[in-house]
Amino acid sequence: MNDCKPYRRRFPISIIQHAVWLYPRFPLSYRDVQELLQERGIEVSHDTLREWNIKFSPLIAEELRHREPRRGSRWHMDEVCTTVGGVRHWLWRAVNEHGIVLDILLQRHRDTEAARTFLARLLGEYHIPATICTDKLASYGATIRELPALQEIDHQQVISTDRCKNLIEQAHRPTRQQERGQLGFRKIKRTQEFLNLQARVTNLHRHTRTIVPAHIRRSNQYRACQLWREVSAGVV
């Protein structure tokens, strides 16, 4: 792959970050992003957009992760089945009580070892929660009993139709939409990088919604300003 310096000389970083932001924020293909940019007089090929995403997605995701507030004492965890390159994988996700995605991990299995790996990642990044809400999967309970740091937490197991599952189920929606738009994921490493960036970009939008009153969010001026803030926040 070519070095990123030619892109920086030809295109301002604001255009690159806007193109990289569009792809995970909305269920668009590279050709859709190409057409949107062409409508604004920016001629760029879909191959270049793909290379931009490969090069800059991890950097932008890491930058946004450091800007997120470390809050929330209630975790909601869930896993969904997805196909990557024709092979079934399990997408493990955790959100807090505000709907902010804490972490997301693709794994081949849906067992105790996979649950332990995911929980260990979360504990290495965040403080120990007061409550963890999961479904009836036995792997969660076995892992929580094994980890000494989680012995005192309140583990709540809920059924899939329970209302407290809404937060985690809503967090899966952007991934499902993008999966349909791409006609399936193809490479596990690239898919993991894309999902990390998608989660951070979505968090930026959700975090603003939790602290701004509804009547202000409904104004056109506010929505336009917020759209610009989301684009600008990805500068690396």
Rank of each mutant, 00 (worst) to 15 (best):
M1D: 05
N2Q: 07
N2T: 11
D3F: 10
D3I: 10
C4K: 13
K5L: 15
P6S: 14
P12H: 13
I13E: 12
I13R: 13
S14M: 10
S14L: 10
I16C: 06
I16L: 15
Q17T: 09
H18I: 03
H18A: 10
W21T: 04
W21P: 01
Y23R: 10
P24G: 06
R25M: 10
F26D: 06
P27F: 08
S29M: 11
R31D: 06
D32K: 13
Q34S: 06
L36H: 05
E39R: 13
G41V: 05
I42T: 03
I42C: 07
E43F: 08
E43P: 00
V44C: 05
V44G: 04
S45I: 08
H46P: 02
H46A: 11
T48V: 15
N53G: 03
N53P: 00
I54C: 01
A61H: 04
E62R: 15
E62G: 08
E63Q: 14
L64W: 06
R65K: 15
E68S: 13
R71N: 07
W75T: 03
M77A: 04
E79P: 02
C81D: 05
T82D: 07
T83R: 14
T83H: 11
T83V: 09
V84G: 02
V84E: 01
G85Q: 02
H89A: 02
H89N: 09
H89M: 12
W90K: 01
V95C: 10
V95M: 07
E97R: 09
E97Q: 14
H98L: 12
Q107K: 07
R110E: 03
D111K: 06
E113F: 11
A114D: 09
A115D: 04
A115T: 08
A115K: 04
R116P: 01
L119F: 07
A120I: 09
R121V: 09
L122H: 03
E125G: 00
Y126I: 00
T131H: 15
C133A: 10
Y140R: 08
Y140A: 04
A142S: 12
P148C: 11
A149M: 13
A149K: 15
H155I: 11
H155Q: 12
V158P: 00
S160V: 09
T161Q: 12
K165P: 01
E169L: 07
Q170D: 12
Q170W: 11
H172P: 03
R173M: 14
R176C: 06
E179H: 11
R180D: 00
R180Y: 09
G181V: 06
G184C: 00
G184Y: 00
F185Q: 02
K187V: 04
I188D: 02
R190D: 04
R190I: 06
T191C: 12
L195A: 01
L195I: 07
N196W: 05
H205N: 10
R206P: 01
R206D: 03
R206A: 07
H207I: 15
T208D: 09
I211L: 15
I211S: 14
I211P: 08
I211H: 15
I211E: 14
V212G: 12
I216A: 06
R217C: 13
R217T: 12
S219V: 12
N220G: 08
N220L: 13
Q221L: 13
Q221K: 15
L227V: 04
W228V: 14
W228M: 14
E230T: 04
S232I: 12
S232P: 00
A233Y: 05
A233W: 08
V236L: 15
